[in-house]
């Protein structure tokens, strides 16, 4: 059976309780094409049930919430199913399972979480701010996973005096830091007025990028491996 839920953590946990004993269960919050013979079940989120499940699972593994949070942030097609199988295995074993790498359910979940960690690390480097007239730094980007708010602590620690906006254009949300606190807000499109020097600095950066390259030693495949093409859209040096 396919279990549809609303994509929230509580929704997932409710669906998890419903699907626990079903060997062919498939959990998803995305629109999916039903194949012949599959029956869809639409799960109504039940906060109290979810809270109980969470408490129980946390008693098996105190870092469970972090894992679940990461797995639900993943942009992978079947991330919710991976999360379901991981959590079901946890509920069976009743103690932390993340080191049991020979179990394929665990390995899939661990790989999925690793990908998110890696993307966060990537964007610590690949985010490109532009300076606006008001002095706010603005950075549009489109990550594979929903990591917008997870990037804030890094930039807040190194640029505490600069207000900035991290804009996830794919999910149409933004993390806004005002110099003291930060919040997440839906943001479809931002009109940005650049500061007077901004284009000049971007030009200097492009000059630097071209000058530091060694043209006779071209290794494009390696470059693309380290810096995937899908990230180039918002990097001035790759325009």
């Amino acid at each position: 059976m396919i279990y549809f839920f609303d994509g929230t953590k509580s929704g997932f946990l409710t669906a998890f309780l419903h699907a626990f004993d079903d060997p062919d269960a498939l959990l998803t919050s995305k629109k999916a094409q039903l194949t012949l013979g599959q029956t869809p079940v639409f799960i109504q989120t039940d906060e109290s049930k979810a809270a109980r499940a969470l408490q129980r699972l946390r008693s098996f593994d105190c870092e469970f919430e972090h894992d679940l949070d990461f797995l639900l942030r993943s942009g992978m097609e079947n991330n919710e199913q991976i999360a379901f199988r991981y959590v079901r295995f946890l509920a069976k074993i009743k103690r932390p399972i993340r080191n049991q790498l020979a179990e394929s359910d665990v390995f899939a979940a661990v790989e999925c979480m690793k990908k998110i960690g890696l993307e966060i690390h990537h964007f610590h480097g690949f985010i490109r701010f532009m300076e606006t007239q008001s002095g706010v730094l603005y950075a549009p980007f489109s990550p594979d996973n929903d990591i917008c708010d997870l990037l804030v602590p890094h930039f807040r620690a190194r640029l505490p005096q600069y207000p900035f906006v991290l804009h996830d254009v794919k999910r149409k949300t933004a993390a806004v830091y005002d110099g003291k606190n930060y919040f997440i807000a839906p943001l479809d499109k931002a009109d940005v007025l650049l500061s007077a020097d901004e284009t000049e600095w971007q030009a200097l950066w492009k000059k630097y990028y071209n000058a530091v390259n060694i043209p006779s030693r071209e290794r494009l495949k390696q470059m693309r491996g380290f810096m995937p093409v899908r990230y180039w859209k918002f990097m001035p040096e790759k325009q």
């Binding site: 480097g125 390259n213 060694i214 071209e218 380290f226």
Partner: peptide, 16 residues
Amino acid sequence: CCHSFTPDGRCISLLK
């Protein structure tokens, strides 16, 4: 932390 990669496959981390 690497901030960019040049076509020769090397990373740009520091302003060299």
